[in-house]
């Protein structure tokens, strides 16, 4: 265990490098002024006439990107199936 108490140098280097790379958006983007918003503006303008939903996020989740939600529900179902399968013996 004494060998493991010293953190490996490569891991430390990797962590610092990843953090520094991910600091780049803070210099390139400006918070509050998104660059490209054409699709989102289309959803906001047309969600009520095309889906009838007041909530634009729900309109996207269940109508414009319904296949996404279908896959998401399937992932949830399969994860629960895996949990149930692992607890089969103890039950």
């Amino acid at each position: 265990m004494a060998r493991c108490s010293v953190p490996p140098k490569l891991a430390i280097f990797l962590i610092i490098a990843v953090t520094l790379i991910l600091l780049l958006p803070a210099f390139g983007l400006s918070f509050g002024h998104p660059l490209a918003s054409g699709t989102d503006q289309y959803y906001i303008d047309h969600s009520q006439e095309q889906t009838g939903s007041n909530n634009v996020v729900t309109a996207i989740v269940f109508d414009f990107r319904g296949f996404d939600t279908l896959g998401e529900a399937t992932v949830l179902f399969i994860a629960v199936l895996g949990v149930a399968m692992f607890f089969r013996r103890t039950h």
């Binding site: 962590i15 610092i16 990843v18 953090t19 520094l20 991910l22 600091l23 958006p25 803070a26 210099f27 983007l29 400006s30 918070f31 509050g32």
Partner: peptide, 13 residues
Amino acid sequence: ANLPFIAVALLIG
């Protein structure tokens, strides 16, 4: 003004 992005980088670190 870009504080959320800095917070994201620190959290991922």
